[in-house]
Amino acid sequence: MTDIGASAAAEWAALVGTAVLGTDRRPLPPPAAGWESLGRDATSRLPDAAVELLDRAAAVATARRAGIRPGPALTLMPPAPVDPRPVCSDTASLLLGRLLVGEHDVLLPEWFARCRSAGLQIPPHLVPALLLRGRRNPTFDAAARSVIGQRAAWLAEAMPELGIKGIPTAPARALAAPAVQPFVPPAPPPDSGAVVSAIVSTFHDQAATWAAAPQLRTAVAGIDPVWLPALILELNRASFSAVTERARVDLLGLARTRMQMVEAFAEAAPDGAAIRPDDPAGTRVRLAP
């Protein structure tokens, strides 16, 4: 019985050898020891070598598949350094997933800033995506690594095939330097209420075309979050215009996503450094006529 494994290998090799050339060209060798009766169909009286080969191959193939054995136990790789920070909430992590696939990614710097100030950890399954994205974007890489922590260097060492560096990507060369923007959230304007009024007025003037959307997006990403409900209200109220509709829907989505993000981090760290404005919430926006 101990030889059945070896004889299976011999039988299989013989069958494969004949099958590759074809039974018309190469005679089917007799079965190996232990495989004489298996795969032989007693009821078939046809002396067909091809059918006999298939019968015998079926027996060995079944044994090969069913006789699956685990490989040798492997040595574990060095464990990742322990990160004492709690993992951010599910809502925040889902949101980061959405931002990373390009949905309102203007909010990414703010996500990092809030995560850092709340002292939270990025869920591990999103770490590779961040590091891969940072391979060609040094400022993004630096911002992401400041939130990821030591796991970045550990992953770079554990999976060299990813092409991630153990240390942050070197700053860009001098030539490209002017184009590089620091990866930080836009500074809040001195008067967010006025910015909201201005945004809403662009819809009244039908100036909020799709071409103007990038500037509007930056403005929405920068305003004080207490003004977000008012902005959403006004954007919902804005009358329909074919010229501005696309930008309106986009800004509405951005404002809502940002509100979700603020709430997600406020839950995690109610006493944290979330941006707490002095203005009472729900301030009515004065609109330009």
Partner: peptide, 19 residues
């Protein structure tokens, strides 16, 4: 008790390692 190979071309390997 042993090991089992992961299919070639499994594209979320980095996530699995990191988790």
């Amino acid at each position: 008790t042993g090991s089992v190979p992961i299919v070639a071309g499994f594209w979320r390997m980095a996530e699995l390692v990191c988790v």
